[in-house]
């Protein structure tokens, strides 16, 4: 299971656009809509891992286009610290990543989802906490 925190402006908008365009993405992705990427921090990411997530993605607005000032930039730093935490624990750096997307372009978020899956199944990297590769 991959948990994706989608901000309701750009990322959820992109997912809606992808849906309207009948684009396909893996059923491993579980979307959690959040008001802003800034709402998904270390607490939510670690909570997802502790409850069985194999990888976590936070997807927000493009840099400079956050609907809540610069919260996506703050989340970028928080996610980087969580990434470092997982690496220090011996897990893959790809277990958690932050992406950006554009609401009008569905392929931006579908591309993000494909990128998450590709990284999760990369045999060259260590596993993620929630499960084996």
């Amino acid at each position: 299971m991959i948990v994706a925190f989608l901000c309701q402006n750009c990322a959820q908008g992109a997912a809606n656009t992808a849906g309207v365009q009948r684009m396909r993405y893996s059923d491993e992705i579980h979307i959690v809509r959040v008001p802003c990427a800034g709402r998904a921090g270390a607490r939510e990411i670690l909570h997802a891992f502790n409850n069985g997530a194999e990888a976590v993605a936070v997807i927000g607005c493009c840099f400079g286009a956050c609907h809540f000032s610069d919260a996506n930039l703050i989340t970028l730093r928080r996610v980087k610290i969580v990434k470092k935490f997982l690496v220090e624990m011996g897990y893959s750096t790809d277990c958690v990543t932050m992406y950006t997307s554009r609401a009008a372009e569905g392929d931006t978020i579908v591309g993000d989802f494909e990128d998450i899956l590709e990284r999760k199944y990369d045999p060259e990297t260590p596993p993620c906490p929630g499960g084996a590769k």
Binding site: T75, R77, R78, G111, D112
Partner: peptide, 21 residues
Amino acid sequence: GSLAVNLQVDTVATDCATDRL
């Protein structure tokens, strides 16, 4: 992390011309 907002963080471009951490 909120207070570290002035620090440089590495990002890379994705195939769809968006950014990834």
